[in-house]
Design a binder for these strands. Structure first.
Lengths: 257, 257
DNA sequence: TCAAAACGTGCATAAACGTGCATAAACACG
DNA sequence: CGTGTTTATGCACGTTTATGCACGTTTTGA
């Protein structure tokens, strides 16, 4: 071990994150050489960053997480079979006449396709992709929250959107979780987005978080609320038992078929 | 093996995918030369991409997957070739730094796809379908007008939308015309929609109406403004001369290529 | 029909990888 | 201060992965 490790662990990881943001890739060997540490250490760093969703691990180094690349799955809207199952379980919470807020995210986009059209529902959203999907369902009423739309989250999370949300009290909100963990609770990749989700949770009579397996046990930089703050957590049936236990959840958990 | 592999595997495959999207084929030998790897490696890449349905393997290289079927195209508003031409002519009005309002309608949806991404443009719209299209264009900023979304028009034309529009002064507005005639001017199928278009025309520094041939010489129940109220009318080149004369237009007419 | 080009497969190799373990610094507590 | 614990790191080991090469097969086009 070096007597003077030029950079502390967090500094090193922060620097790696910075490089991933500016350049297109990072190579393990180069970083090891530059930071004067072994490649093992760099690999550990990259593994941790990847686990936190901060980069994508590839052979030889790591790539930045493709930020706005969600458009492909969203474009075809339907989502995976698993996501549809989860969305169906979430949609089962809809009752006649309700006003339902759909937060941004691919899971909620799938939910937009699953909401029944014969229950006189009103859907509120601040995400154009979801609004467009709702418009294609003739039986649903749509109310759009406006404002500056953030490209990363694909939703109007700014001041105007928050102001408009304050005028509403949805019967139920489907909160989109970027990451879910028993320790950190629900977390988001964007500060404004996290703040919006907090307000949304407070404004709604009932709050519901749906999360596919991949999101369980992961964390993102910006905390929304601990799990206990939500009324329902909907997860997939075949979630790893260890992970499921790790949630240590107080709110009721619904397991999708 | 190279001591310094210029590109990581994933980058290489991503680049191949990019080329398949822009050009209409890739050649194994060329790629090998360019990426400084053996043809075997390229062939392996192409095989993997083909297995993932990302390309079609052919002798000598690979082809992009055939264009998604028509229903998808319509869904995402690529529109017909003619409509794209018209939209391109409209998009040519965009200048660096402008704020552009896109009214609802399929022609403006096509315009959303045609706006250049390198001009620092801000797009404002009250139509979720158009907003979703703009979100898929990384170079465009998006501002969403909210409110109750009317199912028929697919846009927020109500009181709240109007109120939000009053706070804006777009540099140029692309007005969607349901029908255009020299006698009745621009007309719409919906009263609220017509009122919104009137306000939009007044609020904008420059107003532009684009209309495909089918709409010329027709009328809808609710008048917006006579043609003289608009700054530009964009029509197709091959419009019937009689119809074109019938417009008796005062504003400049641009004919799309 | 025939030769050249492209192809697939099996194999070899070196780089990159993960895991388990050892060490030493940092820390937490009494 | 001492002692046990945690943490970050490096090293050794076996495994996996990406790649190039050799060799036989298939496709293409003249």
């Amino acid at each position: 071990m070096q007597i003077a490790p030029a950079l502390l662990l967090d500094e090193r990881q922060a620097e790696i994150r910075r490089r991933l943001a500016s350049s297109d890739r990072v190579i393990a060997g180069d970083l090891a050489l530059e930071f004067q540490v072994s490649e093992d250490t760099i690999r550990r760093d990259l593994r941790e960053l990847a686990a936190a969703g901060q980069c994508i691990r590839v052979y030889g180094g790591a790539l930045p997480v493709p930020a706005p690349d969600l458009s492909l799955n969203e474009r075809y809207g339907i989502g995976t079979e698993r996501k549809r199952h989860l969305a169906r379980a979430m949609a089962a919470f809809a009752q006649r006449g309700m006003t339902i807020f759909l937060d941004a995210g691919s899971t909620n986009l799938a939910a937009a396709h699953m909401l029944p059209e014969d229950l006189d529902l009103t859907v509120v959203t601040h995400a154009p992709h979801i609004a467009a999907a709702v418009l294609d369902r003739p039986g649903l009423r749509l109310f759009m929250i406006g404002g500056k739309v953030d490209t990363k989250t694909g939703a109007a999370t700014g001041a105007q959107g928050m102001r408009e949300l304050e005028q509403l009290r949805p019967d139920i909100a489907f909160i989109g979780a970027c990451a879910v963990s028993g320790v950190t609770g629900v977390t988001a990749f964007d500060a404004e987005d996290a703040e919006f989700k907090r307000l949304l949770t407070r404004q709604s009579r009932v709050s519901l978080v749906g999360a596919v397996n991949e999101k369980i046990g992961t964390a993102a930089p910006y905390p929304v609320f601990p799990l206990s703050a939500f009324d329902h957590i909907v997860i997939e049936k075949d979630l790893d038992p260890a992970k499921r236990a790790s949630l240590a959840i107080s709110p009721p958990v619904l397991v999708s078929a």
